[in-house]
Design a protein around this nucleic acid. Structure first.
Lengths: 179, 179
DNA sequence: GATGATATCTCAATAATCGAAAGACTTGAC
DNA sequence: GTCAAGTCTTTCGATTATTGAGATATCATC
């Protein structure tokens, strides 16, 4: 992130820049994991991201069931693309759609047991890895890590929503940063 | 991840499943952040991922400068796609390519100062968010978190390499998991 | 009931990505 | 020194996921 090797004094506590790199690296690794999963199962990377988001469920800021609209947000796709993704997943037998009884405009997306087992089987080694790493930490430390991860996620989520509202209400869209 | 709501006893320490969800959610949020960055700058999401990977530098298992080949791995793209990404970034003035003097087959990718400043400006709120979250933790706790993140990243990286070697040396490619 | 808003889907057009093949260069053996 | 095999990158036509606008169905309000 620095233009030249910064001769920063050896800091004891990792700074935000270091955390940014750590988080980015980890996120990149998670993406690759999903990509390999996709390749192994004959799916597209986007489809896997969607399937995992469906399984992860509605853990975001706004609660409620998983709908195409929520996936559109979470995957940053257009509505047409979400329809295509869900069509592919449904055709492959991984998910099913059902109309909400209360609001028949809404479609709720559910994953099938087979898809869950498939994911569990594939991610077993990942869970092993997580367990191995976790074994190096005390229960207290693990709670700290989990708390940090949760706080970061919600923090970034709030930041994203705030920024989107800014650009929506602003005079016009934020101009690209030109240097 | 469970087919039905598991009635697991209230566990004190987060298990690997909970960590998986946490990490996935965070990774998803990081992706969205990059996507918004791309939209704001008129870039493609892939281009931003590549630019960030270039800036992050060669922090992976294998050391060395950033080359198209490394990006091909890290972004899970084909060589042709990497060339296209670098062409776009170079045309936009964000990076430059240079042939390695020692091995003239290799191309080294460098980012321009302007790209660095652009990223720094855009990610400033993210850094603020990171700082705000970090303020809730003691230096000791932050070190623990950083250690966990680093260990997870290298662990997943090793796992991925091992799995790829397995499929490469195996009788034939691993069959899709069918249930 | 009519109107506006919301949620999803349809479909033609676009553009990013793939996949194979070629070019440039290096390494090792003969 | 030369040849062959291997590596890294690029080129380019074909494929296909995604876009973007519009259509459809449903809900909420007056």
């Amino acid at each position: 992130m620095s233009d030249q090797e910064s001769t920063a004094p050896a800091q004891r506590t990792p700074d935000s820049k270091a955390f940014g790199n750590l988080l980015q690296g980890l996120a990149s690794e998670m993406n690759l994991l999903g990509h390999d999963f996709a390749a192994a199962q004959g799916l597209h990377a986007t489809d896997v991201q969607a399937l995992l988001a469906i399984m992860r469920g509605s853990t975001g800021i706004t609660p409620g069931p998983v709908t195409p609209g929520r996936l559109r947000e979470e995957l940053a796709l257009t509505s047409g693309a979400v329809t295509a993704v869900l069509d592919r997943l449904e055709r492959a037998g991984h998910i099913r759609r059902s109309r909400d009884a209360a609001d028949r405009r809404q479609v709720q997306v559910h994953y099938n047991p087979g898809a869950s087992r498939m994911a569990a089987a594939w991610f077993a080694p990942v869970a092993d890895c997580t367990d191995a790493v976790a074994a190096e930490f005390s229960p207290d430390e693990l709670r700290t890590v989990a708390r940090f991860l949760g706080r970061m996620t919600t923090g970034l989520e709030e930041l994203r929503h705030a920024r989107r509202e800014d650009t929506a209400t602003g005079p016009d869209s934020e101009p690209p940063i030109r240097i």
